[in-house]
Design a protein around this nucleic acid. Sequence first.
DNA 1: GAATGGTTGTCAAGATTCTGTCTAAGGTGC
DNA 2: GCACCTTAGACAGAATCTTGACAACCATTC
Lengths: 294, 294
Amino acid sequence: MTPDTGPRLRIGELSRRTGVRADTLRAWERRYGLLRPERTDGGFRLYGSADEARVRAMTARIEAGVSAAEAARLTVSSAPMADAAGDGATEGEPLTASAGALRVALEAFDDSGANAVLDEALSRLTLEAVAEGVILPAMRQIGNRWESGEISIAQEHFATGVIRGRLLSVARNWGAGTGPLALLACPPGESHDLGLISFGLVLHSRGWRITYLGADTPIDTISQAVGDLHPDAIVLAALDPAPFESAAEELSALASAGRVLIAGAGASPELAQRLGARVLDEDPVGAARQLNAT
Amino acid sequence: MTPDTGPRLRIGELSRRTGVRADTLRAWERRYGLLRPERTDGGFRLYGSADEARVRAMTARIEAGVSAAEAARLTVSSAPMADAAGDGATEGEPLTASAGALRVALEAFDDSGANAVLDEALSRLTLEAVAEGVILPAMRQIGNRWESGEISIAQEHFATGVIRGRLLSVARNWGAGTGPLALLACPPGESHDLGLISFGLVLHSRGWRITYLGADTPIDTISQAVGDLHPDAIVLAALDPAPFESAAEELSALASAGRVLIAGAGASPELAQRLGARVLDEDPVGAARQLNAT
DNA sequence: GAATGGTTGTCAAGATTCTGTCTAAGGTGC
DNA sequence: GCACCTTAGACAGAATCTTGACAACCATTC
């Protein structure tokens, strides 16, 4: 735990940065103990970056419809303060509320708020649960709201980027270890890779090593990697059947060189059969359990 | 320990150079111990270039909303005083060696090894130096070796993914703060975004807030985000002129709605002029310095 | 439907702190 | 001699402090 070497802000500046009035910040402190700032010798409050994150998490939750008291309770319990040990694992926010808060933060282009919500969720739950119950639902909502025109594609793009960065940072060194090796990629034309990354994370937590090639990967790129690495499983994911269909021939060839599994909403049993591949569950977490069970 | 051979300034001259009143400089010294100038026999203060830098750091922090006392605390603790002036950059392993090691690890699909190289480099140097001296050279080498057929595209794909994940994890919360806001994206057809992310990181370390939309972003997506966020700068990067050319019309429109800057090897002054945009340095680190200087 | 009570953002008043600037009386440097 | 600098202290405006209150709002109860 770093002792927070960054600048400590006075209440006005924190207010300016977070958009929450100073009065309200003091009220949150007084009523809920949301913050416990240091003080100058004269008594002025001094906030650190962790405090800023907490305020953002708080506002994200309130935006998502949680009451202030409840939002504060969740925010405080997720990151106990210096000496105020939380009363332990209280029930915790229903995951849907976290998902809502995450969605709201992402739609507001607020990467810091989104990360604060994720920090809170990850402090309470396993990565697997957070992926299944918070991240993927939030991204599904965002996808739906984009389709229905409620939000812009810019918001969807931004959200995807923030979540991808966060997942990949959790994925650090997922290629290391001794377990079986899975090669992951999205076929050409498919750019939605968050589900696949989630899948990889869950699989890694089950002991697998992961090599991730990324979204929109040409099949011959995958073939080259298969030749280099001889993975135990080759997992391709797409939200639509089209990327699989248009690479059908190459995929069949690939399936004779290794164990190919197709996943995502674009995969279907009969498509898999035609390609000589297997199909995995549509849900990333379920798919990982499924693959690991074989 | 260089004893600072530069010219010594009296307080009026330092005041003129930095724009800070002499009274204020004395107050900062008296109250916060910000400066500890030498004295003439008669008692006049004599400042060196390190003092000037410290004053500038102080004003920059105050500009960013930090209180004077806090700004002074940060400035004093971050830079040793005149009598303990370490020259900082201990030479260490030549950066090219680190870049080579990184390249080798990435080509071997060894994400864990690559991260170890980066960990080591980051423990010695600033992020800026690592980006400029290790990451970008390694990726440039990998690109060249792919073009010459020495390595497969799968290796290049993998390397890009690992580095992107690493950079984005460093980029956490780069949208928070109070500085000017930069909106970053690669235009449609451009998928190489590592340089742009590096640029964003350096710019963020200079106090900017970053909103990153990602690679291969449609121009109207960018326009929407501009409408939502009103960024102080819109930076688009591509390795090739083609993505700019094929979106020329939309880009011109965008340039009338905000301050558009184009960057990367695909940008050129005459292209920028045609689009009503400005051009930035090809090197991401240089480009960030350049934008920040305006 | 009216009354009640809890929640929550905002405001008020008077005191205190923070910080840039100023004053006064004198000394230094060229 | 003149411009510049020194110290010590004072000052004023901006920012913040604490305590308490208030109004809008929502849910419950009678």
